[in-house]
């Protein structure tokens, strides 16, 4: 039981680190919060709303995302997020770092 808890905590830390990368990667086209949540979940990346929304705001305040409130298809107003030019540059760099990192770790684990 104790091990299980340790593993859960470590997993949480691991995921926290890669969430920004996951979110940036999925915002090449506009998404609102809940649709992004589902898009991530459909691809196997489960994320809590209470984690996602603050993260979106932080990425936006860092200039990596842009957002605006809009009404699409007569639905209720929703905030749509999309990656910014700066975000694209950062994502490209992160992708490279991620590949190098996974390669290193895979080598270590094999």
């Amino acid at each position: 039981m104790e091990n299980e808890e340790l593993v859960q905590n470590m997993l949480l830390e691991l995921r926290r680190g890669i969430l920004s990368l996951a979110v940036l990667s999925q915002l090449s086209r506009e998404e609102y919060g809940y649709s992004l949540l589902k898009a991530l979940s459909d691809q196997g990346m489960e994320i809590d709303q209470s984690t996602l929304y603050p993260l979106l705001r932080r990425l936006e305040s860092q200039g990596l995302l842009q957002s605006d409130w809009r009404i699409v298809d007569e639905a209720r107003p929703r905030r749509y997020y999309v990656i910014s030019t700066q975000g694209k540059a950062v994502l490209a760099k992160l992708k490279m770092e991620w590949s190098a990192m996974t390669e290193t770790i895979n080598k270590m684990l094999s």
Partner: peptide, 16 residues
Amino acid sequence: DIEKEIRSTLEDMLEE
């Protein structure tokens, strides 16, 4: 702003 976003999300989730 945050209130508006939470409300919008909750309604989306409920609808779903």
